[in-house]
Design a protein around this nucleic acid. Sequence first.
DNA 1: GGGCGCTATCAAACCGGTTTGCGCCCATGG
DNA 2: CCATGGGCGCAAACCGGTTTGATAGCGCCC
Lengths: 357, 357
Amino acid sequence: MPRATIGDVARVAGVSKGTVSLAYSGNRPVAEETRRRIFAAAEDLRWTPSQSARALATSRTGSIGLVLNRRPDVIATDTFFSRFIAGCEAVLAEAGMGLMLHVVGDPDAEAAVYERFAAGRVDGVILLDVEQDDTRPELVRDLGLSAVVLTGEQPRTDTSSDLPVVWTDDASAIHELVDLLVHAGHERIAHVAGPLRYVHAATRRRAFEAAMSRHGLEEARIVEGDFTAASGRSAAEQLLGSAAPCPTADGTAPITLPDRPTAIVFANDVMAIAGLSYARSIGLRVPDDLSITGFDDSELSAHLSPGLTSVSTGAEARGEAAARTLLAVLTGAAPQCVEVEGNRVVRRGSLAPPSTV
Amino acid sequence: MPRATIGDVARVAGVSKGTVSLAYSGNRPVAEETRRRIFAAAEDLRWTPSQSARALATSRTGSIGLVLNRRPDVIATDTFFSRFIAGCEAVLAEAGMGLMLHVVGDPDAEAAVYERFAAGRVDGVILLDVEQDDTRPELVRDLGLSAVVLTGEQPRTDTSSDLPVVWTDDASAIHELVDLLVHAGHERIAHVAGPLRYVHAATRRRAFEAAMSRHGLEEARIVEGDFTAASGRSAAEQLLGSAAPCPTADGTAPITLPDRPTAIVFANDVMAIAGLSYARSIGLRVPDDLSITGFDDSELSAHLSPGLTSVSTGAEARGEAAARTLLAVLTGAAPQCVEVEGNRVVRRGSLAPPSTV
DNA sequence: GGGCGCTATCAAACCGGTTTGCGCCCATGG
DNA sequence: CCATGGGCGCAAACCGGTTTGATAGCGCCC
């Protein structure tokens, strides 16, 4: 038996289609007695309005779109996305909206997805991983899609794009990490950044350099990673050398190379964990010989030994804020920039004063 | 300027709406010359058919639904989901379909999502994490949704549900792991399972017991975890005791308790990594004093030291297979059960013969 | 009692596609 | 020369809702 339609409900309740619609939307008053009859009929027939029909009539699809343009294994290991999506979902579900997700492999594919989104599939989109000279804001504007952008710094007011922005202050978190390290006595601190084409990665990198020079430490060593464990490990290899001059088989500390960093600030937890593991494998003790920090504060980081010092980014909160902002725009509110105060440094055992050799 | 409609295209091309539609669908032949005019007009107007209108007319929404009923932090750390979704997406995108994702917190919320799915939002759904006496197959059938189920064992033919199933042979992978451990000389092997309400977790647990008894090792110790790092750590605590009787500060091996397991088979990588970390923190050497295996083979596992022995589950392949099967059902094919041969044991340094004390 | 305003409802148009019965036109064959 | 048939395209119905101008019914007041 096919699904009941609004016509069936109207017939059973003895009213017209229009009245049923009004009873549900409340756009015009309906007599209490009539409303009861309609609801009863709808319940009897197990009727729920068809989203397809409603979408056509209202030209609102009732869902928003999200495109993830990263390699699947990065999405899988980086814990940001899942938590961000969960945050979005919590808000969207409350509003009766759906989330349409696409995972793509390259920018062209991503553009194609927005084209399809604009053809009556979603009402708006959330833009993640903004790059330098990103063409997507322009694209979605041309397509008539509402959008909200996620960034890691306060948007400049002179920016050409007038899209609403949800941002966190990533730079401060980096400053805090560097401060912690410097106060603990570190001087040779290295940074393993994310792909620098991402604005947020570049922001953190700049923040790292600024923090270092603020402490009079100019010789900041920076390696660009790509958020994978593999790149975290190879970055560590570059920074630490391929083997300790003197393995710790006998329990003594390895000789400290003059230019070997005593601390590394990684751009995410996965790279940090892989880097930590590598450091140990060449005989370095963490944190005695090398302090390590991550970024994202994945659930795993708290349960390592030593625990990984990281930055809790409030991914859920950012997802919620992004969804909320987008919903507001969809209901006609003016675009706004909202800050999410989600970043919080979590200090754990992986950060300690350097051992004095 | 609002989006062009099929009527605009028809007018510009000098034909009727119907002919435009036919030219695109190919459901009836259209003269070559006419077709060219239509396509040219469509291109001029940058017209793309509205999915909303098409959905109403064809009663096909062009998207499928996926509900994740797990805690956000578990989804975030467990790498299965992202890779599974990426696999789905690859197939769906090719077919011009979308994926509607929902993350929910409890079974009631999940049921509500399926109700909404059935109201013209998706054409079919993929069911993950099947539980004992799961009510979802029945629910989606009642709602008239097409569905495909993902499992970790061959479906019994006497099962009441006639839904198509995409399955992998998880039990064999567990048998292989246990075989590896036994051949390496282990006898006291423990298992940290996933939540046993999940059919796949129960399957693996049974497989573990069967493998042990096949080797004449009856005293299988099993702890139930919940896939989080926290539970992996506390499971390790239960199995290994809270501290090594003799710390390795002087480099000697800790005294082996008579009943301490020499190997632990974890149900996923995150728990394994947390467990490994705990073991080390109480002075046990991995793999010398304790061998450890995981499940899922996350990208991180390959880049630890020692590398984590795990089971590569072919999550992408399973996603692809699930999407493909669902698409087939949607186009009218008979429900089928397909096996995905994705499980492959990846041996790394965390598995070795027990040290003879 | 007639005019007025208000409320509750109806009927019809509309959203933008798909589907199908029908008719036109031209070529072909008897 | 006329009947037949096939290739093309048109017009209209339809999908299941929403929206709105019109109307019926009612009470109220002057």
